[in-house]
């Protein structure tokens, strides 16, 4: 153990310099990350379902148009990507794999072995899906500490959507954190169906996030967003935190409280209105109340409230501290699912 301080001394400046390299060193790191992370990156093939009826464009016109299943969303015909989360075969991928309502999900590992995958659970607010394959001794990712995921940092996106034996690589930087209501980080790397479900990695080989087909408004990314320099990834730390619930088969949806904050209020989150029949109404909240905390966490602006709610799901119980005039009260509310979901 005597060598440990020396090791730390050496490791710390190196870590701090992970991105402070010349072009040759950056290139060497990107190549290395692509090689080292390849075993974590799996191909997810969805067969059957809609694909059975629409297996391939047969006319030039179809080939150009693709198959539009909803406005702006274009069905892709290739495989999608997943990241191994646990050595016993939990795989994270995205809802992009499920749009065909496939009858068969087949996961192929980097070593070429294929497995039938079971769909366990999904988080619809994050377009996140958890699959399970009967495999063991799989490699697992090292999540980048959230504090180290900062704008400007290099980000390597890997995916298997283009086929081939090795994952495809694109390079960009972390553009922003806390996007899509605090659920995602944004990257300038080329992100599209070619790598949805794949990892976004740092040059040190840590995984920053899971690439997801989200749009800024939380909806599904449309063709316009593909490879546009605006793409999103769920922080891997968040994915790992939610994974146990999804592995139990839960389907998580965005949670709604049913309040509209007064955007002009200067003194905090003052409720401009409370929707009739909403969880907030059931908890006894009223127009004019000042919302102070959610589960003990202070909310001082409407945007903090939005991010706090975005981290939670329909069905979650939240404890709210509110002030009405001079009176402080603590109430509980169970978040509802959005209308129509």
């Amino acid at each position: 153990m005597r060598a440990l301080p020396l090791l730390l001394l050496l490791a710390l400046p190196t870590l701090a310099r992970a991105d402070d390299l010349d072009a040759a060193a950056v290139e060497a790191r990107v190549r290395q990350v692509a090689r080292d992370l390849a075993p974590l990156v799996v191909e997810v093939e969805a067969l059957g379902g809609l694909d059975e009826r629409f297996d391939a464009p047969e006319t030039e016109e179809e080939a150009r148009e693709g198959i539009l299943t909803k406005a702006g969303f274009k069905q892709a015909h290739g495989p999608t990507t997943g990241v191994i989360l646990s050595s016993d075969g939990l795989i994270a991928t995205t809802t992009f794999a499920l749009h065909r309502e496939p009858r068969h999900l087949i996961v192929t590992l980097h070593d070429g072995r294929s497995f039938v995958a079971r769909l366990l659970g999904r988080d619809e607010a994050r377009a996140l899906v958890i699959l399970k394959i009967d495999a063991k001794d799989l490699p697992v990712p090292r999540a980048a500490p959230p504090a180290e995921v900062v704008p400007g940092r290099f980000a390597v996106a890997l995916g298997r959507g283009l086929g081939g034996r090795s994952p495809g690589v694109s390079l960009g930087i972390v553009s922003a954190v806390g996007r899509v209501g605090g659920r995602a980080l944004q990257s300038s790397a080329a992100i599209s169906p070619a790598n949805y479900g794949g990892p976004l990695a740092g040059l040190d080989g840590s995984v920053l996030g899971l690439l997801v087909p989200l749009a800024l408004d939380g909806g599904m990314a449309s063709v316009d967003l593909y490879d546009s320099g605006i793409g999103f990834a769920l922080p891997l730390a968040d994915v790992l935190a939610i994974a146990p619930r999804l592995a139990r088969g839960e389907v998580l949806r965005p949670g709604v409280l049913g309040v509209s904050p007064d955007l002009t209020a200067k003194d905090g989150v003052r409720l401009a209105s409370v929707a009739a029949g909403s969880p907030a109404a059931a908890a006894g909240l009223r127009e004019g109340d000042l919302l102070l905390t959610i589960d003990g966490e202070p909310v001082t602006t409407p945007w903090e409230l939005r991010r706090a709610l975005a981290r939670r799901h329909a069905g979650d119980e939240v404890t709210l501290e509110v002030r009405r005039g001079a009176e402080a009260r603590t109430v509980k509310a169970r978040l509802a699912a959005k209308e129509g979901e």
Binding site: A11, P39, P139, D204, P244
Partner: peptide, 19 residues
């Protein structure tokens, strides 16, 4: 191993199942 060898500390923590 997913990480490079330079950050031995982190690499030690790396390959663990989340559960």
């Amino acid at each position: 191993r997913a990480g490079l060898s330079f950050d031995a500390e982190d690499t030690q923590r790396s390959h663990r199942a989340p559960s």
